[in-house]
Each structure stands twice: as C-alpha cells, then as structure tokens.
Design a protein around this nucleic acid. Sequence first.
DNA 1: GGGCTGGGTGACAGTTTTGTGACACTTTTC
DNA 2: GAAAAGTGTCACAAAACTGTCACCCAGCCC
Lengths: 241, 241
Amino acid sequence: MKPKVLLVEDEPALAGALADNLEGEGYAVEVAPDGRAALERWVAWHPDLVVLDVMLPGLDGLQVCQKMRAQGQTTPVLFLSARGAPEERVEGLKVGGDDYLAKPFHLPEFLLRVKNLLRRRAETPRAVYEFAGHRVDFRAWTAYLQDGRKEALGEREMAILRLLIERAGEVVSRDEILDRVWGQEVFPSSRTIDNFVVRLRRLFEPDPAHPVHFHTVWGVGYRFTPQPEFKSETTSLKEPT
Amino acid sequence: MKPKVLLVEDEPALAGALADNLEGEGYAVEVAPDGRAALERWVAWHPDLVVLDVMLPGLDGLQVCQKMRAQGQTTPVLFLSARGAPEERVEGLKVGGDDYLAKPFHLPEFLLRVKNLLRRRAETPRAVYEFAGHRVDFRAWTAYLQDGRKEALGEREMAILRLLIERAGEVVSRDEILDRVWGQEVFPSSRTIDNFVVRLRRLFEPDPAHPVHFHTVWGVGYRFTPQPEFKSETTSLKEPT
DNA sequence: GGGCTGGGTGACAGTTTTGTGACACTTTTC
DNA sequence: GAAAAGTGTCACAAAACTGTCACCCAGCCC
C-alpha cells in the first residue's frame, strides 16, 4: 500500500504544488489547511508522515506536533517554515519533529527528506497483530495461524487484511477497498475483492461458510471483528444451527 | 552503553569543540581527520552514528558515505558542509546520508539532530555474525561455512548479506536494497539482485532450491531468517515469539 | 598486454499472484 | 412469491515476477 503523507499547509498554491509532486513520487496525499483540520485528518487517516508548516492560522505547527506527540504517536514529522531562524528550528526539533526544512527550499531536497523519513516506516513496532489465536506479521508478510501453520501473504491479500484490521469493527465499503488497495485508476471487477475475502476466510475462519471475523455487510462491503462476539442486535434475526 | 559517535572533521579546532559537546551529551566520541581514517575507524569501532564533514583531504565525505553504503551498512550519517548549496545537500542525501547541516550551524540544533538520528537505531551492527553453523566476518569479507569451507565475499555480496541480516525477520524490498546498496542514481537491472541472492543461497543454504534462510517474498523482495523454521503443514507445536 | 575476478545484463523458462466470467445461491424489494 | 440485486466459489487465463544461465565488461595483478 502506498505510503500516506498528510500535508499541512495553508497556502493553497504551495500546498497544491507539493501535493502534486508527492503524488508523482507515488505517495497518497491529503492536504489540511490548518491545525485543527490537521489533527482531525491525522486521527482519521493515520498517515505515515506529516509535513507540517509552522505558521498556520489558529493552532500553529508546533502545537499540532506537540498534541500528536502527547498522544504517544511517533508518526514522523517534517517541519516547513518561512523563517529559518536557528532558534525556531530548535523549537521544532524539540517538540518532537524529526526534520526541519526552511522555505524556500529545493524541491528535490524536500522529496529526498520525505523519502528518508518514510524509510523508517517499515521499522514501526506495531507490525504484528493478533486475534483469535492467529498472528499476522505485517513486516514479514506472514500469517501464523492458530493451528501452527505458517502462510505467506500476497501483496493484495496483505493490503486488504491490513485495511480491514485497521478499521476493526467498522464496515469498509467495497469502494473504499478499491480505492485504498488498487488506487483510483484501476477498477477490477467486483468479484475480485470477494475472491480475496474468500482467501482470508479460508485462512482465518474456523468455518469459512459461517464467518466469525470477516463479516459480509450486505450491499456495502465487509467488516472485520477480532473477537467472535454476539451482538444482540445483529444476531437475533436469524441463527442457523 | 553510550551511543558511539564517529566525528570526521579535518579542522582540529572545530573537531575538538564538537567532540567536547558531544561527550557532554553523554556520547562516546572518536575523531577521524580524513576519509581514510574514517573508514578505518568505522570498520574497527562500529559507531552508531557518523558525523561527516563533506570537505576532507583525500577521500571526501560523499565518497566515504558511498563506500559505507556500498557495504550494506545502514549506520546513520549526518553531513556537515561549509557550502550549503541545495544541489550539494541533495548529493549528500542521495548517496545515503540521513541528514545534512550547513556550516556554520547552531550548536543546539546540531545536538538535537544528532539525538534524533540516534533515536532510530538501537542495535549495534556486529562485525561477526553467526547463524546455522556459518560464520560471516564482515571485517574480513569472509564467510566460514558450516562445512569448514572458507569463502571470500565480494563487496556487493557482502552489502546485501549485511542488509538482510540487519533486518533479520523483516522483508526488505528490492527498492530498498537498490537504495541502500547502490544509491539513488544507479539502477542495475532487477536480475542483478536476484543473482546475488542466488549466490548467497548457494553459499549458505543446505538446499538452494528450498531456501530456509533467504526467503523470497513474492512481489516485494527478500527476507532473511537465521533459524530454519518448521515447515508449515506438519507440526502444530509451539510458536516462536 | 593477457588472464583473472567481481559485477552487471538479457534471454528464457518457470512460478505465483491477480483478475475474470460463469453459475449457483442469498438476501431484498415489490 | 417472483424478480432483482448482491455474494460465494470455481476453474482458468493473463500478468507480473523470479531463478538461472551464459555471457559481457571493467579493473587489476602479474
């Protein structure tokens, strides 16, 4: 899956240009025009890197970074600032920024620094997920099943699994899966997604015909549930023996 | 254990001052006055971070960094340079540098950036690595195989081996191998990496056709596993942590 | 210079993954 | 109920990717 970059910049022209360039490098980009929007997108989207302008209307960049760090998140942050005063740079690094670049900057340098910071993404510790006795290692692209089997995961397989797990408990629509996993350009047939879900069920479900973890939400998409819970509202309708 | 910083700077006054400050921050510091000495100390001492002046007598900083990267080493590198031209910064980042600071710089900023870079990696690279009865000596570019044979390793061969070993258990993508071993500018064909892996397998795998250590991760890259893992289908014993 | 040696390339033959269409089956809607 | 819409599965084709091999090239050491 493409690395996700959250770009926080209030000047539309610069924001647009940077976004284009980042997209050209193969990143998924979202733009937030101010601090509040930045925090909101950050929580909702879980970007892999935040590019943060220091001067912003309302909440400034430093405060945004501080807020994020206060929540124990280690998402790398690259500061951008018009004033390149050393004291300010130090401020930025002190509140937990990982890099600091003064405007106006050299575009290739910016892109390289972004790439550098993202390189660390693979090293995040939160790469193993466990549920119902299975263990999925996203770094090793491997699933250790409950029964001890070890299975290698394909790229798409992993992407879908990761997406569903990230949204555990929520319904993820087919459209969104298509968007996230395949990108806007490609449109595989609807059967394709099903196929992958089938495979996931075969791997993780005790009884693939009666899924406990990978629920189908009719007319919309799928929902992943770590624990086979019995929610009164949903199960009361029909329960086959 | 104190983080080890190798400071490569030919001007004695500056070198002394920086060394003092770094030591004041609690790092163990060694100083190398030129490129050749830098490589020598690097091999012998295995620092956790290299602070590298770009302009050096003889071998310049960029070349030093390139040499280190060509050996698959991922030790973070912080470049220092009198000329802050953007093109030069980009050069530095391209050969695998992790950060770039223009002289004259603000001391607190320097110290913060050092701290930042050290935050990344805790594990110290080892000079000699053993697995499955083989022993690899990265200093001597030599592998002592399980059966007693002794094999010389080429530079690239070593670089890839080292990179994979540093990331043991993790998938290392082809892109990343290219980046770290060859640098951003060179693009050897995709077959090239395969070839080296083939060679590594021939050396270290009991049965090269069914690799136990150098796994292919389809569509992405390779993964090194020190311990031969149990085959999936048969046993349901206990799992590695 | 002439033969090594380590690196790098292109071709080719596998492999594995991904995507598709057909078809049966379920759930909704009317 | 019956028609319509949406899903689960399967076999199979199309792509994409990897393992090898023979071979080329550039330094390097006599």
